[in-house]
Simulated assay, not measured.
Amino acid sequence: MRQLALFLLACCLALPTLGAEAARQNRQEQFGELTVHYNAITSSILQPGIAKAAGLMRSKNLGVLNVAVEKAGKSYAAAISGTVSGPDGKKERLTFTQVTEQGAVSYVTQFQIPQDATYTFDLSIKAAGDTNRLSFDQELFPGDS
């Protein structure tokens, strides 16, 4: 399970961003004392054991969104909700599952990615008594993995 938590955190922090402004290249957003890390990937790149441990399906047509919240450099619990929309503009509601491993908390969800496109994510992050909104775009390529 530790391997899962490390992989999901690495996805949030390490994968490159195409076409995003400089402030978002690290796939993070600051809300006062909270730092929100986020990233979406095609689920077929997950190792089978990691996908199984997180209850995720591996498929070239399913994406995974991972969100982690920190306060003062430490993992922080939050309530995450939101939607994703693709090139057709149709919104899909995202249902997040909390993954906790050795004090590290992250939230994962899966969504459909039927074609190479830029997907728009609109998230609500409730933590530390506040609700913050985060919207970002990310390109996904379902046939690549």
Rank of each mutant, 00 (worst) to 15 (best):
R24N: 09
R24Y: 12
Q25D: 11
Q25C: 06
Q25L: 13
R27V: 03
R27G: 02
Q28C: 10
Q28G: 02
E29V: 12
E29S: 13
Q30F: 07
F31I: 02
F31A: 04
G32T: 04
G32N: 06
L34E: 04
L34I: 09
L34C: 06
H37G: 02
H37Q: 13
H37I: 02
Y38Q: 00
N39G: 12
N39T: 03
A40D: 03
A40W: 06
I41E: 08
T42R: 06
T42S: 12
S43H: 07
S43R: 06
S43G: 11
S44E: 14
S44I: 05
S44Q: 12
L46S: 02
Q47I: 05
P48W: 01
G49N: 14
I50V: 15
I50C: 10
A51D: 10
K52Q: 15
K52W: 09
K52G: 04
L56F: 09
S59A: 14
K60S: 14
K60V: 08
K60G: 07
N61D: 03
L62V: 01
L62T: 05
L62C: 00
G63D: 03
G63Y: 00
V64A: 04
V64R: 06
N66M: 10
N66G: 02
N66C: 15
N66W: 01
V67P: 00
V67F: 01
A68M: 12
A68N: 05
A68K: 03
E70V: 08
E70Q: 13
E70S: 13
K71E: 13
A72R: 12
A72L: 11
G73C: 11
G73T: 13
G73P: 07
K74N: 13
K74E: 11
K74V: 12
K74I: 08
S75V: 08
A77N: 14
A77S: 14
A78P: 06
A78D: 05
I80Y: 03
S81Y: 01
S81F: 02
S81V: 08
T83L: 02
V84H: 04
S85P: 03
G86Q: 08
P87D: 14
D88M: 04
D88F: 07
D88W: 06
D88Y: 07
G89Q: 12
K90T: 12
K90I: 13
K91T: 14
K91E: 15
R93M: 04
L94T: 03
L94D: 03
L94S: 00
L94Y: 02
L94N: 01
F96I: 01
F96R: 00
T97V: 09
T97K: 14
Q98I: 07
T100A: 14
T100G: 09
T100R: 14
E101P: 03
E101L: 09
